[in-house]
Design a protein around this nucleic acid. Structure first.
Lengths: 365, 365
DNA sequence: CTGAAAGCGCTAACAG
DNA sequence: CTGTTAGCGCTTTCAG
């Protein structure tokens, strides 16, 4: 009644040994049909469910892949919970979906855990790491050092570019997107096609190779056009959320001086927050000011004006991460670290002055 | 090098017993600071990570909550993977997000697993059940019978209404939405406000109390208006996907006869599929035909014309599910089964003929 | 094809 | 505050 049934109970009730019970679940064909049925029947009667923990412990594998991601949720959005209308997919949602699909194809389940805003990230990875066969880490959710240690024991893939400071390459697998190229192309579009000259880049305070790469792409485009941007991101967001995007606008307008013609944000959420703030202050996008983002989250297409941005193949990143993990788990354990670079595409939409995008297709796409 | 370090290794290297090592991780304050540091240092050197499996086995709890959901993904969408543009959030994505958030607040991680299209669902639940402290099941992913057995051992909450056939109530907790009321109100709107009289309801072949309740709401509205609809859903979708929605349109147009004035679909994905199919055939919504959905997934607002639908509080369902599980896990184990009924709201948009909805607010909402 | 026995790595009383 | 001692429930050789 109160004690969960175990192999022993099932074994006893069906008159076999625990080994046989185990076999029935692990490799049914290795047991005579009659015996098997008897065991299964007993299990059903008892309400037996194999303990994943015991299994994992004994077999040293869980059939689970993991994902650690930062808490991207937007305080602002939370606040306006009038109705959960704004439930557009964020970056992490897409990665989750991609990973789940690929994991399922390979017979794995997915364990997801977001870093708590202030909590000890240590416990986070440790918790996940201890329960999965391998896992992915989104962005810099976890100190690289810790990951390197863990990766000695199980596959870890980082959903971000490798650190680039000199020679000290980590030994992790990486999946990144063409941050540099994408931001370069977008910026060039602003400069060449829209004739903008006074740009401002808004990066983030957190050290992220991806955001760095984007900034470098921005700089490269500026230099190529003979512009001389400040060498550091003019403004830095503390977090990459909508709320911060709005704050940036406050700061920008407060400081006076000549207003930039275009704000190039390091991600969509910042840009969207900025869009709202600008609108509240009576500034029109793109007429008074051009705004661009990066990521291509679905929300970027929902806002008005629709956000010009660089689209990352997020679903695919999730899938590739799983493929990589699975590959490592089945053999290729000690081949060289891999570093996949996925392509991006620039989405020219309204917020940069490109025509109403809801062209021909009246449908979803 | 090759063998993962265990408590024993850490204990030996730091000159304490395994019990102390364990304490350091479980309850740091119960160990003298100096000792603790020594242990932690040894752990760091060795690259020690506690085994979740062993922990779970010994302590009979995992710190993980689970979710089983059906594979809602759309074959159609997969096909048109030209770019993963269409990555709007589906029902399950929202539930996942809601659960993950709430789980995080309570210190749990979330394990998600979708039923394979043809695979043995048995293995699915069993796998999840064996690895979590409690879990939620979306819709009828799993046979109720199996769930009842499992629920004798661990909390299970069903994200759907309870079966209603007579007295045989299952002993599970349920979280459902006001399907009947919602569909009733929407249908009444169609009849009263738009003057439509020739309606057709498209349900699904799968037995689902929720879909049943929606149909009953539809019927009630029809009867109240003196309409005499067929007593069964005129058309039944085999799955609730966009592809099926398109097929339904084919079937409808193929069979000739007087065309209905309004198609009332049992969920948004069907309705969206229908929208596309209708458009391809040159029929205009809502002018030639009114279409409505149910769920209120973000996609419903994205399509053109925007879909009139009944909005479920999906995020909240996920959160409530976790709250319920957590409550059960901490004490309230053997109180009566709970059945939460969450309210819905009708979203009147373009597909029923209600004005352009992108009213005042030019922003996200 | 089936059984016996030895762990897997950790937690949880109990003693000290 | 720390060590000892039993298991937790299953997989896995190795025999039969």
């Amino acid at each position: 009644m109160s004690t969960t049934p175990t192999v022993y109970d099932v074994a006893e009730r069906s008159g076999v040994s625990i080994a046989t019970v185990s076999r029935v679940y692990r490799n049914p064909d290795s047991v005579r049909a009659a015996t098997r049925e008897r065991v299964l029947a007993a299990a059903r009667d008892l309400g037996y469910v194999p303990s994943g923990n015991a299994r994992g412990l004994a077999s040293r594998s869980t059939g689970i892949l993991g994902l650690c991601f930062p808490d991207y949720s937007d305080p602002d959005a939370e606040a306006s919970e009038a109705d959960e209308e704004d439930a557009a997919m964020l970056y992490s949602d897409q990665i989750i979906r991609g990973m789940e699909r690929a994991a399922r194809r390979h017979g794995y389940a997915l364990l997801i855990a977001a870093s708590l805003k202030e909590g000890s990230a240590e416990s986070l990875v440790a918790k996940v790491a201890g329960r999965v066969d391998g896992f992915a880490v989104l962005s810099r959710t976890v100190p690289t050092e810790e990951l390197e240690i863990i990766s000695r024991r199980q596959p870890v893939v980082m959903l971000a570019g490798p650190r680039e400071d000199g020679e000290h390459a980590d030994h992790l697998d990486h999946i990144e997107v063409a941050n540099f190229d994408g931001q370069l192309e977008l910026t060039r579009h602003l400069i060449d096609d829209h004739g903008l000259r006074r740009l401002a880049y808004i990066g983030s305070a957190e050290e992220s190779p991806d955001v760095e790469a984007r900034f470098r792409g921005y700089l490269a485009a500026c230099r190529a056009a003979g512009l001389d941007p400040a060498h550091e991101p003019g403004l830095r967001a503390r977090m990459m959320t909508q709320a911060e995007g709005a704050h940036i606008i406050d700061a920008l307008l407060a400081r006076g001086g000549p207003r930039p013609e275009a704000l190039v944000f390091a991600n969509d959420q910042l840009a969207v927050g900025a869009l709202h703030a600008l609108q509240e202050r009576g500034l029109r996008v793109p007429d008074d000011l051009v705004v661009t983002g990066f990521d291509g989250i679905p929300l970027s297409r929902l806002v008005r004006p629709a956000l010009t941005t660089v689209r990352q193949p997020m679903l695919r990143m999730g899938e590739e991460a799983v493929e990589l993990l699975v590959r490592r788990l089945s053999g290729g354990r000690d081949t060289e670290p891999v570093s996949l670079m996925l392509p991006v595409t620039v989405a020219r939409r309204e917020s940069c002055g490109c025509g109403k995008p809801e062209n021909g297709d009246p449908g979803v796409h």
